[in-house]
């Protein structure tokens, strides 16, 4: 895993990640066109390019087939969040920008729900609802007095700003693509699934040959070992034994048993696929058992169902001192806000 990002060098290295860089580039041009400018802003073109970037990003994530309700909700919420974020940048009227920000917050709350964090969803809505109402008051009080201000119709260095955003997003997406590269295990899972669905022994034998190709000597003609097998062996540890056993079952022409075995292997592979790029918690960390859920069947920590209770115990067991500090911070911030904003007589300024 500890390979430099562009170890294979220059343009060829970048070309591997074109799938992540292309939508980011489209979004860069789109955002540049959408930013308010005195001259040269093309909102229609910007909207089109931004929509294309969004669709491409969706496809980039959707490459892994399968439509589940969770997936549909995820795409709906994240598309809303990103469109809202783009609208905060593009709106010339600050009231509309604040409304778009409310859209971003609400869709992020939907994503929190998908991530099994209902308490955070409620807390975010409560905190940001207050913040947005206050922002509205400010906008109406300050910005709407003399119509659209000239500051809202111009941007400061729109090209450089969108370029910086493109470099940041492109680099982040490339690193994510590299860290969560699931192509190895997807190819293996596809072949394992094919064996599990085989109609006859001969069919299974042919599909099994495809799996063996993954593990063959790369010098042999017909070998398909372009995929890092070691990585796959790390994710599914007992592959070697299973393959030996599968060969035995194939020779015994025991199709039902073989299919059952490969179905189980497929399930384990799906589990392993979820764990790509996930750091395992350090056992030596002084976290109390409260913040760790009970162990699931696979021996990993699952999130507890009682989200609020668990979160409360975590806060007051693991994070007792930080939560006191957070309270002090809130107090100091409110005092500071009053001290800054209070009207004082002219001589005291």
């Amino acid at each position: 895993m500890d390979v430099a990002l562009f170890a294979d060098g220059g343009a060829a290295g970048l070309a591997r990640y074109w799938l992540a860089l292309l939508p980011a580039a489209l979004g860069f041009v789109g955002v540049y066109c959408l930013l308010p400018q005195a001259k040269g802003g093309r909102p229609m073109l910007g909207t089109l390019l931004g929509g294309a970037a969004l669709a491409l990003t969706g496809w980039l994530l959707l490459r892994h087939d399968g439509i589940l309700p969770e997936r549909i909700l995820f795409y709906a919420f994240s598309a809303l969040a990103i469109v809202g974020g783009g609208m905060v940048l593009a709106q010339r009227n600050p009231v509309h920008a604040a409304l778009s920000f409310a859209l971003v917050v609400l869709s992020t709350c939907g994503l929190f729900l998908l991530l099994a964090a209902p308490f955070l969803m409620a807390a975010t809505i409560i905190v940001y609802a207050g913040a947005i109402v206050v922002t509205f008051l400010f906008v109406i009080m300050l910005a709407q007095q003399a119509g659209l201000a000239s500051a809202d119709q111009r941007s400061r260095e729109p090209f450089l700003a969108s370029l910086a955003g493109y470099i940041l997003i492109g680099a982040l997406l490339c690193v994510l693509e590299k860290t969560f590269d699931a192509r190895t295990i997807d190819a293996a899972l596809e072949r394992i699934d094919a064996v599990a669905r085989a109609e006859s022994v001969d069919d299974a034998r042919r599909q099994f040959g495809e799996i063996r190709k993954l593990f063959d000597d790369p010098q042999k003609p017909g070998s398909d070992r372009t995929l890092p097998v070691d990585e796959m062996k790390r994710l599914i540890p007992q592959t070697d034994q299973d393959l030996l056993e599968a060969e035995f079952l194939l020779n015994a022409r025991d199709l039902p048993k073989l299919k059952a075995m490969f179905r189980k292997l497929h399930q384990q592979g799906l589990q392993a696929r979820l764990s790509i790029g996930v750091l395992t918690a350090d056992e030596k960390q002084p976290a109390t058992p409260f913040s760790q859920g009970p162990l699931d069947a696979a021996g990993r920590h699952a999130l507890p169902a009682q989200n609020v209770a668990g979160l409360g115990r975590t806060l007051f067991a693991d994070y007792l001192l930080p939560i006191e500090l957070a309270g002090i911070l809130l107090l100091v911030a409110s005092i500071g806000a009053i001290a800054i904003a209070a009207r004082r007589p002219e001589g005291l300024r």
């Binding site: 969040a81 905060v88 600050p94 941007s155 955003g165």
Partner: peptide
């Protein structure tokens, strides 16, 4: 979201 927020912070003047 982070990148969009950064562009907005850098480019907008309000």
């Amino acid at each position: 979201l982070f990148g969009l927020g950064m562009v907005g912070f850098l480019a907008r003047r309000n």
